[in-house]
Every structure is written in C-alpha cells, then in structure tokens.
C-alpha cells in the first residue's frame, strides 16, 4: 500500500509544472524514504532529478517499493481539477496498474477522486558522480528566470562566465549581443535576494537557452536557485523545495566543434 498526502495541492501542481515541459512521461519511484524521479528529456540533452522526502508529506506510507510510470499530460489534466488549497492524496495498491488522486476541499465538503492508468516505462537510471564544482552561484530564482527569458531573444545559446567578481550571462545572434553581469551582493536585508558566488576556479560554459528556460518553470517552487559549474561537465540547476526536497536539472554543455 502506498499513500502520500500533501495539505496543499498547489505544491504538487508546481512540481508537475516544473517537469512536464521536458518530460512526456516519467517513473515515480516510491520507497519509505519518499518519492524519487529521474528522467532524461526526449533529446537526451538534460536530466531531471526530483526528490520529495517522506517527512515532507503530511502523511506518507509506503509498505513496498513501488515504481509508478505516469503520463505527465494525463497527470496534469487531473491536477487541474484540484483547487490550490485542496488536500491531495496519492494512493496505490502494491503491484497496482492504477494510481488514485484524491482531492479534499478545506471544509471537507467536497471530495473527488481520479484514477489514472499507470504505464510500464523503460527506465534508464544514470549514476551521477559526486563532483566538486569550480563555481557555485546562488541567486534569486526570479532573477535567473528573467535573465534566461531576456537573453533567449538574442540567441540560441547563453554563455555563463563566472569569476570571483561576479557572474556574466551573454548571448549573441542576428540582432546583436547582450550581456548581463551580476555582482555578488555585499549586504541584503533578505536572504532570498542575495547573489552569492563560491569560486575555486573561473569557468566559462555555453548552454542551450531552450533548456535553461524549461528549467525556470520550477521558479514558483523556490526563492533561490543554485547553479553549479565546472569545465566540460553538465551544469546543475537546483531548486530547493522548502521542507520537502529538491529538483535538480543537469544540462550538457555545448562544445566547440
């Protein structure tokens, strides 16, 4: 028996919004530790890794490890039927071929349930090596989303260049070129507004705008985003989900031909 409850459906809606543009379907691996999802986008350029810890749920029970393959388009249709404040419970029997989403209104007067067919997906789990990154940048998630959106007007690629002075995002194309520099903040009233840079070695890497923009769909989950970079390895874009877990996106850099 698997049962996981969140007191506000809005969190699950935001999680789904953060992955459904990159992935058509994905396997949710459930264990007593929580829910894990790892999947590559169709083009195998990026990888999404989602962790929702069991202690972050308002109720969590998982008697036997369970892998639930879900069509994210179908899941999205179902979650649209929940109000943001509804309690949401996911339930499945052991070895079931369906999962049930139950929504309950705050006043307990409306209860809906939606049963969704599960899919058998070929899972290809990749081992992600522990890496000491040359540069780790933390910045407001909204700022990162804005930069990705603005720069994608100028080119298909963004060059991220990080030194101890700051981080520079650049794009160029037919229109011309654009550069956005962010310095490390000296003092801020609110921690979520800070830009911080931990640098061992400067890096300059090129990434596809399209994927960076897709990652920023996770912005509503977190005030801050963390970018981890080293030469010639994938960028990690991490959004922490308060009290629940995190979503990490790995993006292969573009390389000189």
């Amino acid at each position: 028996m698997f049962e996981a409850r969140l007191n506000a459906a809005t969190t699950l809606k935001k999680v789904l919004d953060a992955i459904k543009d990159l992935l058509n379907e994905a396997t949710f691996d459930c264990s007593d530790a929580g829910i894990q999802l790892q999947a590559m986008d169709n083009s195998h350029v990026s990888l999404v890794s989602l962790t929702l810890r069991s202690d972050g749920f308002d109720k969590f029970r998982c008697d036997r490890n369970l892998s639930m393959g879900m069509n994210l388009g179908s899941m999205s249709k179902i979650l649209k039927c929940a109000n943001n404040e509804d309690t949401v419970t996911m339930k499945a029997q052991d070895n079931a071929d369906t999962v049930t989403f139950m929504f309950e209104s705050q006043n307990h007067e409306k209860v809906s349930d939606y049963e969704m067919k599960l899919m058998n997906l070929d899972q290809e789990h990749l081992g992600i090596p522990e890496t000491d990154y040359s540069c780790v940048v933390r910045m407001p998630a909204m700022e990162f989303a804005r930069i990705c959106r603005d720069l994608s007007q100028f080119g298909e690629s963004v060059i991220i260049c990080c030194t101890k002075e700051g981080v520079k995002f650049s794009a160029s194309g037919d229109v011309g070129s654009a550069n956005i520099k962010l310095a490390q903040t000296s003092s801020v009233d609110k921690e979520e507004e800070a830009v911080t840079i931990e640098m061992q070695e400067p890096v300059s890497l090129t990434f596809a705008c399209r994927y960076l923009n897709a990652f920023t769909k996770a912005t509503p989950l977190s005030n801050q985003v963390q970018l981890s970079m080293s030469a010639d390895v994938p960028l990690v874009v991490e959004y922490r989900i308060p009290d629940l877990g995190h979503i990490r996106y790995y993006l292969a850099p573009k390389i000189e031909e």
Partner: peptide, 14 residues
Amino acid sequence: ATKQGSIMSFFTKK
C-alpha cells in the same frame, strides 16, 4: 560554432 552534447556521455548507466 558549438554543438550540443548528450547528457548520457557524462553519466554512467546504473
């Protein structure tokens, strides 16, 4: 010119 690499070339299959 730059070309896009695959994420699979960086991570090992489990």
